[in-house]
């Protein structure tokens, strides 16, 4: 047929497309991660990888398995709801290896983070102007951090 003869070059062009598409499909088969589409349009294995990221905060339940004494002290006081690492910082490495000693804390910095007076804080939250309140005396002189009310026992 003269049509196929005179349109032959068009078929050559089309053939290039078909070849390119076939190559694309083959490459795609090998390149797309295996778990892609397992749960949706994403790499399913990514969920597990993200879940396996390292912890830095052990969580108070872990702390309490050893430090039950502190838990008992805390339970009765105003700081019952304040978890260990909120003041002590991330201690997952200590939980995994208790020989790693956590750093000593400075109450002058710590207490004031929450309890510095500010009109922006909720009115029922205990807050002080540090200079007026203690005149520079360290907080733990009167307040035991694990049970801060004075009657429950300061160290002096």
């Amino acid at each position: 047929m003269s049509l196929t003869k005179d349109a032959g070059h068009l078929f050559r062009f089309a053939f290039l497309f078909v070849v390119a598409f076939a190559v694309f499909l083959v490459v795609r088969h090998f390149v797309v991660p295996k778990s892609f589409g397992e749960y949706g349009h994403y790499r399913g294995a990514a969920i597990g990888e993200i879940a396996a990221r390292p912890l830095h905060y052990a969580g108070h339940e872990t702390c309490e398995t050893c430090h039950a004494d502190i838990l008992q002290m805390k339970k009765a006081g105003k700081h019952a709801g304040v978890n260990c690492e909120a003041c002590h910082g991330p201690l997952a490495n200590h939980a995994g290896d208790p020989s790693i000693q956590p750093a000593k804390l400075d109450t002058a910095v710590l207490c004031i983070r929450c309890h510095a007076a500010s009109a922006a804080k909720p009115k029922n939250f205990p807050q002080v102007d540090a200079d007026q309140h203690s005149g520079g005396i360290a907080c733990e002189t009167c307040h035991q951090p694990h049970s801060p009310a004075i009657q429950s026992g300061g160290t002096k």
Binding site: L55, H56, Y57, G59, V82, N83, E85, A86, C114
Partner: peptide, 10 residues
């Protein structure tokens, strides 16, 4: 566990 922010919210 809970999130780091919730764990440490006093």
């Amino acid at each position: 566990l809970t999130t780091a922010c919730c764990e440490n919210c006093p």
